Amino acid sequence: MDIHQLKTFVTVAREGSITKASELLFRSQPAVSAHIKNMEETLGLTLFQRTPRGMAVTPDGQRLLNEAHQLLDRHQKFLEEASRLRGSLAGQLSLGAGRNSSTGVVSNLLAAMSQEFPEVEVELQHRASVKVLEGIRNGSLDAGFYTETGEDDSDLSTLEISNFCVYLAAPANLVPSASEVNWKALEDVPWIYPSCNSCCGRLARDLLETHGIRPKRVINVDDEGVTRALIASGVGIGLVHANSTNPREQEGDIVLLTQVQKSARVLFAHLSCRIDDPVIAAVRSILATDNCTSIPFQGDQNIEAALIAS
């Protein structure tokens, strides 16, 4: 039995699903199933029961689960201590990032980690902001970037990476210009609408409810860059991010109709109890350098090697 099988055991138990565990571990479902089967055969115990809802941990499995967590923690501490003894940093970092969470900063961070701490294995997962927070709290992520959701984050240590405001935007000439938005008329215009799990998805839902309108056509897009491109090409209207300090009323082929949110922050976060973790401390030290903006990103070939599954 090896450390990878223990990690599989813990992940399946936490997620209650081989499918979800395989996605998080970047392994095939047959490989995850084989890990569980091999553990059960080695131990002579049944660790899971398959139910209509997924994988349920047996009483025996539950007792061993606590030991597995402790073994994984000790394994990580073993690697950290070995790093200290040889004067270098090694270990694993599972990092979450929203699709719109300062992509440049994330890229620069990965480049810096690859260059300065090549023995740290980094796994990057793209998730919605609420899923990044969920992952940090349930242990499937060590840290992550997310757009603030307004929920209590007192259990987290955070660093502000950037901020932006949100505008309702339209293609030039699609919506008549006026000092006040004619909300009723916007029902006839296609809306480019993100998922409700995203920052702009929640804002769009609240905006429609506030003004009592139901768009006749909705196009679901979860990427702000794609939304902006569709608006610019005349497809419809939607929410876009703008510079908080100097938003422009018109950006190329996009007209900013009205401000929806004055300020939204993009944050880097991890559990407060992990503030002294050497790998997380290394990440924080890099981010503290002008929020990584001073680090040139040149497509270092080592980055691909760093983005491997833990």
Rank of each mutant, 00 (worst) to 15 (best):
R274C: 05
E15Q: 09
A288P: 08
D276F: 08
T58G: 04
T46N: 11
I237S: 00
L110Q: 04
L71T: 12
T147D: 12
L95Q: 10
D155H: 05
Q70I: 01
S195R: 13
G238A: 06
V12S: 07
Y193C: 11
D155S: 08
Q250G: 03
S107M: 09
S114G: 12
K216H: 13
V12G: 04
F164L: 05
T103N: 12
F268T: 09
D222K: 07
H75Q: 08
L79A: 08
R50S: 13
A305F: 09
L95K: 10
E119I: 00
S107K: 10
N302Q: 10
V226S: 14
A13V: 03
A21V: 11
L43H: 03
F78G: 06
A309T: 14
E134V: 00
I192G: 05
T147S: 11
E160G: 04
R248E: 15
D155V: 01
S177D: 15
G87C: 04
S114Y: 09
A143G: 06
E23I: 10
V132L: 02
Y193I: 08
H270G: 03
L71I: 13
G104P: 09
S28G: 15
V218R: 15
G144L: 00
E249A: 06
A31Y: 05
V130G: 02
S294I: 07
L109M: 05
D155R: 01
R84N: 11
R86I: 04
I136H: 02
Q62V: 03
E81T: 13
S177N: 10
Q125K: 15
E116A: 07
V226I: 14
E119L: 04
K7V: 01
L109N: 02
D60V: 03
T258G: 03
G144C: 00
E123G: 06
R84Y: 14
R14E: 13
V106R: 07
R228D: 03
V283P: 00
I280W: 00
H4W: 06
A309G: 14
D223A: 09
H35A: 13
Q62E: 15
H75V: 01
L95E: 06
A242S: 11
A13N: 08
V235A: 12
G96C: 09
F78L: 08
R284Y: 00
E151A: 03
A282H: 00
I308M: 10
A68P: 14
E116L: 09
I161A: 02
E119T: 04
I213N: 12
K184N: 12
L133H: 04
L174P: 14
Q259R: 13
L25S: 11
R84K: 14
